[in-house]
Each structure stands twice: as C-alpha cells, then as structure tokens.
Write a protein that binds this DNA or RNA. Sequence first.
RNA 1: GGGCGAUUAGCUCAGCGGGAGAGCACUGCCUUCACACGGCAGGGGUCGCUGGUUCAAUCCCAGCAUCGCCCACCA
Length: 964
Amino acid sequence: MLDKTFTPKDAEPRLYAAWEDSGHFKPKDDPDAETYSIVIPPPNVTGSLHIGHALNNTLQDVLIRYHRMQGKAVLWQPGTDHAGIATQMVVERQLAAEGNISRRDMGRDAFVERVWEWKEKSGGTILNQLRRLGASCDWSRERFTMDEGLSKAVIKVFVELHQQGLIYRDKRLVNWDPHFQTAISDLEVENREIDGHYWRFRYPLADGSTYRFPIAHDEDGNPTEWEERDYIVVATTRPETMLGDTAVAVHPDDARYAGFVGKSVRLPIADVEIPIIADEHADPETGSGAVKITPAHDFNDFMVGERHNLPRVNLFDRQASLLTEDDGMGGLDRIPPELRGMDRFEARKTIVAMMDDLGLLDGIDDKKVMQPFGDRSGVVVEPYMTDQWFVKADVLARDALAAVEDGRTTFHPKSWEKTYFEWMRNIQPWCISRQLWWGHRIPAWYGPSIVLLENRGDHHLIELDYNEPIPFVAQTFEEARKVAFRHYEKTDGIPNVIKSSGEHIYDGSFDLVADRQAAMSDDTLEIALWQDEDVLDTWFSSALWPFSTLGWPEETEELKRFYPTSVLVTAFDIIFFWVARMMMQGLHFMEEVPFPDIYIHALVRDEHGAKMSKSKGNVIDPLELIDEYGADAVRFTLAALAAQGRDIRMSKDRVEGYRNFGTKLWNAARFCQMNDCRPHPDFDPKTVKATVNRWILSEAEAAAKAVSAGLDTYRFNEAAGAAYRFVWNVFCDWHLEFAKPLLSGKDEAAKAETRATTAYVLDIAMKLLHPFMPFVTEELWSQTAGEGGRDTQLIVADWPRLDGLVDAGAQAEMNWLVDLTTDIRRLRSESNIPAGAKLNAVIVGASAETKARLDRNGDLLKRLARLDAVTLGDTIPDGSLQTVIGEATIALPLEGVIDTGAEKDRLAKEIAKVEGEIARLDKKLGNERFVANAPAEVVEGERAKRADYAAQKDKLSEALARLG
RNA sequence: GGGCGAUUAGCUCAGCGGGAGAGCACUGCCUUCACACGGCAGGGGUCGCUGGUUCAAUCCCAGCAUCGCCCACCA
C-alpha cells in the first residue's frame, strides 16, 4: 500500500541512481533508431545552479525524456565551460583569502596548475545540482571546454581560420578592462547611464589670433551677440585624455570656424601644437561645434584619426594610470612629471584643476552620460591601443544569416530572428584574445623581424628586430617552427649573414629555438620563437560546442549520428554571445547548421521583473525549492510558466500548488491500488463496453494528443496544462467518481473492465507527466505494476500514441451527466441544503434519449448528487428547486423546507442572466450583415444557442410562476 | 537615437477575430470509505487609453500613455 504522500527527499536520489545504473541516460544502441540530440548550454565551471539554469535544463530534460519515450536514440550532451575570467577570478580570490602569494608571484604554470586543481575539486558542483533536478544527461560523455579533445578542436579552428584570412592580428583600440588588465569584447561591456559632467576647456589658438564667436541667437537662429575669442572651446567627459589630443575637429560647413581649418591650437599642459581639421564627425549643433580628437583613447576619434592620418598618442599603462615609461607612442613627453603614474580618476581631477589654474576651464555642465563597465570587473572600461587577435565576424556571419533567412534554422518564438538579424547585419570584428592565463593559449609563435642593414653582395648585414615580431600560426610549436623556417629562408640575407653587432659571418645556418632569450652561439644564428602569452575568449571555444563535444575533428560515430543536434534551448541573453557564434562556426566547419530549431525561453526574474543577480540579493535558490517541494514540483512550475516570449516571475505559491498536484496524482494511484486496478497485459482499449470507460479513453486520447502537440511545438505551458487538466479535472474529479460504483458493484465483467481501463488510463497519465515530473511518476510506475511487473522503467516506456478511441456518443453522455450533477449540486449549495441530506429528484419532460441516459446512469447520478431517488414525472411537484438541462426540467421537491423568497430570488437572477444572453444574441442575429457575411456554421451556432436559452428561460419562468 | 516586449480577476500569469481562463488568495458548505498538499459550490475583470479595419475586436492596424528589456560612437 502506498503511503499517503510521496516523499521526494527519500525517493529522488534512489530513483536517479536507478536510472543512471540502468544506462538509459545513454543513447540506445539501435543503429536504426531515429536520433535526437541536444547539447547543454555549458554552465560555467564555477557556477552553481540558479533558477535560470533550472528552467533551461528542465525544458531540455522535458524534451529529452519525451523523445526518449518515443523510442529514439537520445543524447543529451552535458559539460561545463572553463569561463576564463570568472574562473581566474575565483581562484585568485581564493589565493588571496588563504594568504598565499599572488598569481603573478606564482608564475603562469603554477597558477594554471592551481586552477586545474580547483576545477577537479570544486568544478563539478553545478552538474551534481543538475542531477538533483532530474536531468537525464549522458554523464559518461561529460565534456569540459579545456579537455584535450576540445582544446584540439579550438586550436585547429584558430589555425584554419587564420589560414583562411578570417583571423588576423591588429593594433587597434579595444575595450580594455584595467582591473583584469585584459581586452574584452564589445559584448562584455555593459553601458550604464551615470551622473557625469562635461568639462569645457579652452584651447588657445597657436598664432595668438582672435575671432568673433556668436554667443546669442534670435528665434531664427541668427546670431545677435558675439564675443572676441583667442581660443576654441571643446568639451569632454574624460578630461584625463586631453593630453592625448592630436587635433581639434570642426565641421567642414561650420561658418564659425571656416577660417581656422589648417591652423593650430596649443594643447595646454602638454604644451604641443595640434592642428584644427575639418571632419564631419564634428556636430555644429553640439557644444561649441568643435571637438577634441584623441585617437588613442576614443573609438570615434580613432576613426577620425585614421581619416586624417593623425598620430595616436597613448597616455595609459595597463592599469589605466598615466605612463611612467616611454611606450614609443609619444605620450610620456606630454605628461608633466608630477602626473606620471597617476591613476586615471586622480588625473582627471588634477587636470581639471590645472586647467582652472591656467584660466582655461570654460565651465562644467552636469550631464547624464553612458559609461562602459566591464561586466565581470565592474570597473570603467578604457578604449586602449593594443595588439590583439580578431575574427572577421562579418564574413562568417553571412552564412549564419542566410541559414536563418532561408529557414534552415528557425527561432521559436520567431520574433527573436529579428534581433539575430539586426546584430548579424551590423556585426563588428570580434576581439578574441584575452590577457589572461586561464584558457586556450593562442597557437601563435613569434619570431623577430629581419631588418636588412646593408647589402654586401655575397652576404648581408642584418639586425633581428624583436620589437616588431612576426607571428607564425600553427597547431604546435613544431609546425610553427617549420612555418618560421620557410619564412626566414625566403627572407633575403638569412643565409650568409653578419650579425649586426658583430663581425661573424654565418654560412646559411640558423636555428629556431623556443626561448625568448635566444641569441647567437658561435656557430649558429639562433632565432627565438616564443608563444603568444594570451588566451582565447571563452566564447571562442563555446562556439564549437555542438561539434567539438561529439569528437570533431575526428570523424566519430557520435558526430555522424548526432550532428546536427535537434534543438538548442537557451535564454535570449546569450543569442549574440553564443547562439550566433555557434551558427557561424558550425556552418563554417561542419557545413551544416548546428541545430534546425532554436528555442528561446524567458528569463526568470524576481517579483519586480528585474534580472535576478547575487549582487541584488533577489535570487530564488532552486535547490531550496527542491528541498522544500521536491524536484517534480519545481520542474512542473517552470514548464507551466514557460510561455513563449515572456519573463517568468517565480512564486513559491505556484510551486506549492504543483506539489499538491503531484500528491493528487499519487493519491489517485493509491485509489487505484486499493481497488485492484492493475495494468492488464491483454487489455485492448478498443473493446471496452461501459460508457464511462469509453469516455475516459476518449479523454485520454485527446489529452495525449494535446500534450504531444504542445511539446512538438515547444509550447511547454500548453503541454503541462493539458496534462494537468486531464489528470486532475477529468481523471480524478470525474472518472474515479464514475468508476466507484462500478468498482464496488456486483457486475464482475464491468468491474474487471473498469479496473483494467482505469489502470490503463493511469499509466497514460503517468507517461504524459513523466517528462515534467519524472520522480513521482517513476516511483508510481514501479509501485503500480501488475502481476507480471513492469517490462521497463517508465523513463523508457512507450509514449502514448492513442488513436481511434474517441467516442462522441460516450463523450456527449458523460458531459450531460457532468452538467446534470453540477447543476443539482449548485441547487443544493445555493439553497443551503445540508451536505448530508439525501433528496429525491423528479425529471419532467425528459426525451427518450434522456430517459435512456437516466436509465443507464441513474445510480451514478444518485451517488454523485447525493440523491435518494431519481424518478420521471409529468408535473413539477410544488415547492421544488428547479433547474433546466436541455429539454428536461429537474425538480428537487422540498415542500415546506425551502425558503420560497430566496428561491424566487435565485430563479429571477437566473432568468435575468439568460435574458441577457438572449438579448445579446438577438442583437447579433438581428444584424443583417452578420447573417449575410458570417460563415453559415457560425450563424447556425448562434441560432441554436438562442433557442436553447429561450427554452431554458421558458422553463425557469414557469418555475417562478409556480412559486406564486 | 534605434529596436523589441508588456499593460487581462486582489497577486503571478495564460488566451489572442465569433459566449473572458488558470494557479494562489478570497467566501460558504463538507473531516463522504484516494487525497484537508482534499471535496463541492461561489464571488471577483467595461481584457491601459483613443481612433480605425471588420457583419463581429481583449484579440488585427494606427496613434497615445505607462512600465520593462536589448542595441547604439554623439564630444
């Protein structure tokens, strides 16, 4: 005998272990089976399960379990992401907390080793938490983005893209995170509006000349007042960069400055002359119309600088403090000695004060400004000149764009395609190098460039220039060495060279060594080859996930079977980071989209609709919910709320409600058990005779089809809702009640049929719910087994594919009985008849069909509506409660018991309601254009409704009249 | 500045051209032999506002208002 309730805490670990032991998480071996695969969006190895993961993985598990039950070979590929910055951060913090030496003191190798240790020890947390949720991943295939195999894929992809000219190295402005001292991509920058200022500076004209500048205008914009100026006013939100200005730009059409283009201003403090140039970037409407140009510290200015060939003067070191050493870009000379080494924000204050002292501060305006922050570090990001590796994302985007345009891949809901298109069409070069230690080290080795100093005919005087190194990209050092050899051999003068600083002549022999300190020995010219210090953006490896996890570049069996995957399930916040990049890499390297469907689900938000985050402290912990209500309840809640295109606001009440639903199912099974409803191996649903049984089979078929349809179209909420309504509102509320008299009756044949049917339908209910509530259903499955036990665990049981069980006659009859029962109960309740009181019912004006139905279901009606007797009559007894079902009037004689006044009120209210409906329909049917234009069946339907209401009204009026 | 979405019962949300729905909360009755994590019955909404299309609009279109999100180089 089942307990009264299910105990998730005890059952979940046991059931999960049983599934895993049975091997059902692995794709089945049948080579003929249709395949179905999903790669998990790999959580950060540092992560712990938050509610967003819970939603994401619940939906995936629902799909996986659904398709597994359909007999497919199903692979849910799990794994984690190495999460460069995040992980490095965690370990560094740990080092600091333990009072250990810092990353830099440890050195690269020791630090990386330390991170691996951490990963082995603590990296599996989130995957274990997924197990608690019930995720049926194939854990034997667990992957990590820095696994040997995946790393091989990453390196191969980098090298091939480089060979194809799609990866290149460039010195340009990048988003620089001064905290982590690394470049980050555009996507990792979070723009936030803050209260800032515009500082207006006066840059004196270099030649000391003056001009009249309009300072007031009339309504038409014509100047009315002027002042004499010997300076140009520029504004900035970042005064600390002014020392790097290399021009002042004005608009070519700006009359106010027309005479100044080509002249110069003297840049204060730095004390250098910089030109006034004409460029459309300057907006005459904004500020003074003149704008300072700082090519090394501003993205716009960088472009202006390119157009006008302006020098790029960098001011900052890697921590965004003013330079203390010469970087070869001329910035140091512009920085007064007392400012060198000063932090950027300190420098800002100091420079403003200095300008003020010089009488060159024109004013300060308060203004809201958008400021870029590093999404991980939270510090202000600086545009910074560095050498970095970039992907030509625009080229790769073409195919990825086309694949969605032509429908090879479809977003669900489709509206996200617009977002995808928008970004893909405006895609920028992707900066993929990171100045970190934890990640895939870039497979590029540098050698010095050769500077030919002198051609001496049979030999040359050269110099090795280590400041302008040449990158050699290859999968291994040995490969890079070969490439480098070819390069240097081709370079004029490598054979027969003279070392620049010496007089030794080398006779064509040189060697390449992996040592940056390499130089020359007496008989061999040694050229150093050293590997790039940087690692790749974490998303570079994530982009390969759908094929790298399946073994690529090896042509594995899994790759053949499971690529392309069936669907990607993810939240919209990583469409750009991840989805778009998987599309690009998948198409480029596999020449096939990584997935035909992309299901974008909502973000789980807090009660105010804000994104949940640790820093806001508004996080709902799914593990706590699981502890309290069980995994099934949490899963069902998430699925039921996963309507397309909306945010989900989690509430505990909801979880509790669905926990109760699990209990309801549990007790229905308990009832079946108590009544010997056991699955019968020979049961054929097509042969059942009792109306009740034919009816519940009809309903079961409809429910199974609704659940399947919902899951086939990623409408998880509809699928969950259909299952919920079927189990609670149909099977429990009505079928079990209908079945009770049969189960306790004397007709053994009917009893046996009802037992078998009820058990059969309970099995269907468990199957339909299994993808959503795997634990409680699996537990019940094992505990409700018939004589022969179960052939399989529920996890691999056949998904219900019911057909041909719909019986319209049975449905009509049982719906009639439901209506009749409900109506009588309502009469009782509204007239305050004690629940225990048994009444008689007299049916007046019954048709032959109604009589037959009463004949068949009279006992059932008596039980459900708590009646003593149901009889047919010609007249309505005095003092009856009355209601109308179809053509018949139901009377509950209560002479002397009922409150006539109250009953009159009740009837009058009901009549008014019916009259309202009739009036509405009359208006509609009286409209000629409705009758003429609406489809015939709609018009017919409305007419029929009106007739029903009219008949009902007549009977109710009659009843009222009889009360006097 | 551009784009997307939301506005439906007290709360959280479904529905989306032809009679307004769910969960929770609320009211009344019921410890009826599966279930009080329950049963039965009920109350509660002019579906943000204004126009338009249509025989018919909560649903389609336009505008407005409010809220939210994403993207963007305005100094």
